[in-house]
């Protein structure tokens, strides 16, 4: 009885193993075949192409084996998820100069086609305690080096790049809003309904190719949006919309590796600027390591009160009439 059982078990295992091996081999074969079929979009014409491998050797490959990789044909020559090589974008916000003129916000809203009720760049009326001064504080995504939002995203929809940017892939986001719960800076904005950009802003998106590098073009219902630090502007060799729109030169944008930042008018050494003006980062104690530095609101040229003229506690996106 015992012997019988173990023999039948052996038989069973044997059969199972064989079936398994056949399945695996079949799978591999099928995979190879499909690759071949895809690659064989051109018949072998005997021409060979010389290619350089990553370690610098030249190899000859039949041209029929060479395929175009669609991702690499776009205007950007780098992987969108990895970022621009050898860059590290930073921003410096000089609180001493901010008068709450709101041009930055309007420009950001316009160029990111924001139709919701919550702007991605907001100017806060801040006061640390009753005895200290009130000041205006522009707040956008801090592009943290240790981003809490990226840690909690279950699908890698929001991601951190080597050039410092934290971006969102709108076509992958599942709308769980965990990133919004995780962000201590409240800079993430959700598309609760259809953003309706085509209607409200007369946008034509028919031939548009979406990229996380230009957030808001288009926005999608049920996904998260936020400040993208304008890599689409950098690609064009221009500064972010908020930097160029500011009449008071509050925003400096630049590259930490080059140790320079500019607000369009003046270009400064980042390290010296932060040292001279005691730059700091917001909520540093949380350990999020933001890419945005603030310069304290000292020696201000205008009164805080002057900014009150434009202050709207319940509105950050102007609605078209």
């Amino acid at each position: 009885m015992k012997k019988d059982q173990s023999a039948s078990r052996r038989r069973f295992l044997n059969k199972g193993l064989r079936a398994g091996i056949i399945t695996v081999l079949g799978g591999i074969g099928l995979g190879k075949l499909t690759t071949k079929l895809i690659a064989a979009n051109k018949h072998s014409d005997g021409n060979s192409v010389e290619l350089m491998t990553t370690d610098g050797r030249l190899i000859a490959v039949d041209s029929s084996e060479v395929m175009d990789m669609p991702d690499h044909l776009s205007a950007t020559s780098y992987n969108v998820r990895e970022g621009m090589p050898n860059r590290k974008f930073v921003m410096v916000v000089d609180l001493a100069k901010c008068k709450n003129a709101l041009n930055c916000q309007q420009s950001c809203n316009k160029h990111h086609y924001i139709t919701g009720d919550n702007a991605w760049l907001k100017i806060y009326d801040m006061q640390e305690s009753r005895d200290t001064a009130q000041y205006w504080m522009p707040m956008m995504c801090q592009h943290c080096d240790k981003p809490a939002c990226v840690t909690v995203c279950p699908v890698d929809a929001t991601f951190k790049r080597r050039d410092g940017l934290v971006l969102i892939d709108n076509e992958r986001c599942i709308g769980c809003r965990f990133c919004m719960a995780a962000c201590p800076y409240s800079t993430r904005v959700f598309n609760w309904g259809d953003p309706g950009q085509e209607v409200t802003l007369n946008m034509d998106l028919t031939d548009h190719h979406y990229s996380p590098e230009h957030a808001g073009l288009p926005s999608q219902m049920g996904t998260v949006d936020k400040c993208d630090f304008c890599p689409h502007q950098v690609d064009k060799g221009e500064l972010p919309h908020c930097v160029t729109a500011c009449p008071n030169g509050v925003f400096y944008y630049g590259d930490k590796y080059e140790d320079t930042v500019t607000n369009g008018d003046e270009t400064l050494r980042l390290s010296k600027l932060l040292e001279d003006k005691s730059g700091y980062r917001f909520l540093e104690g949380l350990g999020t390591e933001p890419s945005v530095y603030y310069l304290p609101p000292v020696d201000r040229l205008v009164d805080f009160e002057d900014g009150m003229e434009y202050y709207k506690p319940y509105e950050s996106v102007e609605k078209p009439e």
């Binding site: 995203c153 279950p154 699908v155």
Partner: peptide, 18 residues
């Protein structure tokens, strides 16, 4: 979930740290 149509992303793009 605001995008239930993308529920498969939870498996296809799953990240273990979340």
């Amino acid at each position: 979930m605001a995008r239930p149509d993308r529920i498969l992303n939870l498996f296809v793009h799953a990240r273990l740290q979340s």
